[in-house]
């Protein structure tokens, strides 16, 4: 048999091996936003609860870099990240919250239980801002520089080891 006839078999084995290898790899679960390094889009969101201001793009312009935290009272990982956001607040970071598909009573109840690290909370009832900034889930945290540009996206809850990472990025984009 001429060796040329082995080429299809070799190709088949190569692709079967490739497919087998891909099956052992972890599935890509996160969809990174393409809006990183882009200006934060214009938006105005109503207050998510009584007694606290809502959020607009202008809140992110001037002064220090800030964090934009997308969360919800119905989101379990958001409970886990609450103490770490509190630590960021203690470090002097301004965190502006966006409550997704949430009710004012539920927001107030969540803040009573798990603390309130936010200076403002806007209410995003129909994922308007989420879609504008390329967020695909709750929670997500964005670093916004003082010129109102999105500089970093953290997908998932903020954990103990995310805190120093975020502080470093906030310092870098100053």
């Amino acid at each position: 048999m001429r060796p040329i006839y082995l080429i299809p078999l070799a190709l088949f084995l190569f692709f079967a091996g490739l497919a087998g290898y891909q099956l052992t790899q972890e599935k890509m679960q996160t969809i990174p936003s393409q809006m990183v390094e882009q200006p934060l889009p214009e938006f105005t969101l109503a207050p998510a609860l009584e007694g606290m201001p809502g959020a607009t793009r202008a809140d992110f312009v001037g002064g220090q870099p800030r964090l934009l935290n997308i969360w919800a009272s119905w989101c379990l990982p958001c409970i886990a990240e609450a103490p770490h956001l509190e630590r960021l607040k203690e470090e002097g970071v301004e965190i502006i919250g966006i409550a997704v598909r949430d009710r004012p009573e539920a927001v107030a109840d969540f803040l009573d239980r798990y603390g309130n690290p936010y200076t403002k909370i806007g209410s995003d009832d129909i994922s308007e801002l989420m879609l504008e900034i390329g967020a695909s889930g709750v929670p997500e945290t964005y670093v916004i520089d003082a010129d109102g540009n999105i500089r970093y996206q953290h997908i998932g809850d903020v954990r103990a080891d995310t805190v120093p990472q975020l502080l470093e990025i906030l310092e870098d984009v100053r």
């Binding site: 379990l76 598909r101 009832d125």
Partner: peptide, 13 residues
């Protein structure tokens, strides 16, 4: 029940 998303859907959903 508190943990449920109880918001009405967007108008054109």
């Amino acid at each position: 029940i508190l943990a449920q998303q109880s918001m009405p859907p967007a108008p054109y959903a």
